[in-house]
Design a binder for these strands. Structure first.
Length: 494
RNA sequence: GGCGGUAUCGUCUAGAGGCCCAGGACGUGGCCCUCUCAAGGCCAAAACACGGGUUCGAAUCCCGUUACCGCUACCA
């Protein structure tokens, strides 16, 4: 517990980096930063069936994007490497051999299918599905002979029959398990690979991990691992189990809940700063008041004592809000860049639309804080990139319902045609004067124009839209819309 | 089924016996600002799961119930 702080994030490369894993990584990272310790990345690829190289790459990419840099790990070899469990097999084999020799573990020749059958039968009878210790009762000589003959077998750790295993959890306090409820877990598989609980213990000890911070789905693994530490004569680390992240329906976050991998959030336009900040608040709070933190500030503020014990439901609306906070704070050039990036990725516009970065920046500036994510840009600017505006149903009906709309559009067009400049304030003045002259409310003149120009009832300020469109296009759209309204009205009458 | 964990507004949470007829944030509703929408400002509705204790006093401690979650693999 004294000694340097060394924590790790130990994902299994069986998929992408999802928010649950990322949050665990983040907490470990923050804990290390807070204590000036070391954050280690270790890849737990002992499941040869499911581990893939692509997943390893996805985890790296996700962590890097979030800004969670590891001090030791793949690509950052330290004194405790290697950092892939597949490269540390010798250590597990030796440790298992030692336990076997000392009689703390035994070989199990039971076939997996047979085990499964017994388990189901026990469950059916309403009994706990513990391993029945068939192979523990094997005479040592027989066990040795069968192993020598090459019969495939696993190695099981022999759990104590009584007593209890307890620890003081750094976030939950005292947790106790009766040893009698623990069964003889397999530590080494027939395929010569260690199981998770065993490899984790051997590595955490070898890597001198001081604190194991992980999701609370690991609570029931902890007593097993504690027994293993004891059997191996190793000092256990401090354990801290943080609450899990649930989907909106209260079940474990999964694909069903929409975006879940960190990269999907990036592609949806979320900023890593926002996602990090948001994830930090899932299961941790500073004082219940302050909510906006940079990664560095989180490192300053983060402590296990302030982690909550209850599971947190992932709140997409709040993430959206937070992303808006960060997005709006970005310099204009950066926002425009992100918008361009997104537009390009979506293939949303013709290539020439991106040619003029200044033009794009003007549009982004006009859209202003209406967008929380780059993907919302087109909601407020699509009309800039089309030849002719096709009004949406609602707005179109509104135009038809307003009897004076066409004439207002025309007089507004005339005004703009003759305006000395498209300067915002000048136009604002002359437009208001015009409205007054015609005896209509300013808003009643602006709204038809907005619809004629953008096809929508919602847009940036009308004078920003005009400036962006330019005099030619503006005047043309205004008059064109007046014509269309009239011909539609005429058709309706006839 | 067994074991373990958790239980404060719809959601994330503050609260570690009196400061709480419970605070903040998202979301929701209203008002203001206003050319629309955002942003911003103001206001509002909204919670201590239930039942027993302990105590002068409990959201805070103990017990039980209920609910939810996790584990119960030769997955991690």
């Amino acid at each position: 517990m004294s000694g340097p702080v060394r924590v790790r994030f130990a994902p299994s490369p069986t998929g992408t980096l999802h928010v649950g894993g990322a949050r665990t990584a983040l907490f470990n990272f923050l804990f290390a930063r807070h204590h000036g310790g070391t954050f280690i990345l270790r890849i737990e690829d002992t499941d040869r069936e499911r581990s893939t190289q692509e997943s390893v790459g996805a985890i790296f990419e996700g962590l890097r994007w979030l800004g969670i840099d590891w001090d030791e790990g793949p690509d950052k070899e330290g004194a405790h490497g290697p950092y892939f469990q597949s490269a540390r097999l010798a250590g597990y084999t030796a440790a298992a051999g030692r336990l076997l020799e000392e009689g703390k573990a035994y070989r199990c020749f039971c076939a997996p299918e047979e085990l499964k059958r017994r388990r189901e039968a026990a469950l059916k009878r309403g009994e706990p599905p513990k391993y029945d210790r068939t192979c523990l009762r094997l005479p040592p000589r027989e066990s040795d002979a069968r192993a020598a003959a090459g019969e495939p077998h696993a190695v099981r750790y022999r759990m104590p029959d009584d007593g209890e295993t307890a620890w003081n959890d750094a976030v939950r306090g005292d947790v106790t398990f009766q040893n009698a409820t623990l069964d003889d877990l397999v530590i080494f598989r027939a395929d010569q690979h260690p199981t998770y609980n065993f490899a984790a213990v051997v590595d955490d000890a070898a890597m001198e991990i001081s604190h194991v911070i992980r999701g609370d789905d690991h609570i029931s693994n902890t007593p097993r691992q504690l027994r293993l530490y004891a059997a191996l004569g190793l000092a256990p680390p401090v354990f801290g189990h943080v609450p899990m992240i649930l989907g909106p329906d209260g079940t474990r976050l999964s694909k069903r809940h929409g975006a879940q991998s960190v990269m999907e959030f990036r592609d949806a336009g979320y900023l890593s700063e926002a996602l990090v900040n948001f994830m930090a608040l899932l299961g941790w709070a500073y004082d219940g008041e302050r909510e906006l933190f940079t990664l560095a500030e989180l490192g300053e503020a983060f402590t296990l004592e302030r982690c909550s014990k209850n599971p947190a439901i992932f709140n997409y609306e709040k993430l959206d809000w937070m992303n808006g906070e960060y997005f709006r704070a970005l310099p204009l050039a950066r926002r425009a860049e992100l918008v361009a990036e997104h537009l390009r990725a979506e293939g949303a516009l013709a290539p020439e639309a991106y040619a003029d970065r200044t033009e794009l920046e003007r549009a982004v500036a006009a859209v202003g804080d209406r967008m929380k994510r780059p993907q919302q840009f087109l909601d407020y600017a699509a009309y800039l990139f089309v030849e002719r505006v096709e009004p949406e149903q609602g707005p179109w009906e509104e135009l038809l319902a307003k009897p004076g709309a066409p004439s207002r559009l025309r007089s507004f067009a005339t005004l703009l045609e003759g305006a000395a400049s498209l300067d915002h304030d000048a136009l604002d003045q002359s437009s208001r004067a015009l409205a007054k002259e015609e005896g209509v409310k300013f808003g009643d003149m602006v709204m038809p124009a907005r619809i004629a120009l953008t096809g929508k009832k919602v847009s940036p300020g009308i004078f920003d839209v005009i400036a962006l469109l330019g005099r030619e296009r503006t005047v043309r759209r205004l008059r064109d819309m007046a014509d269309r309204i009239e011909s539609a009205a005429g058709a309706a009458k006839a």
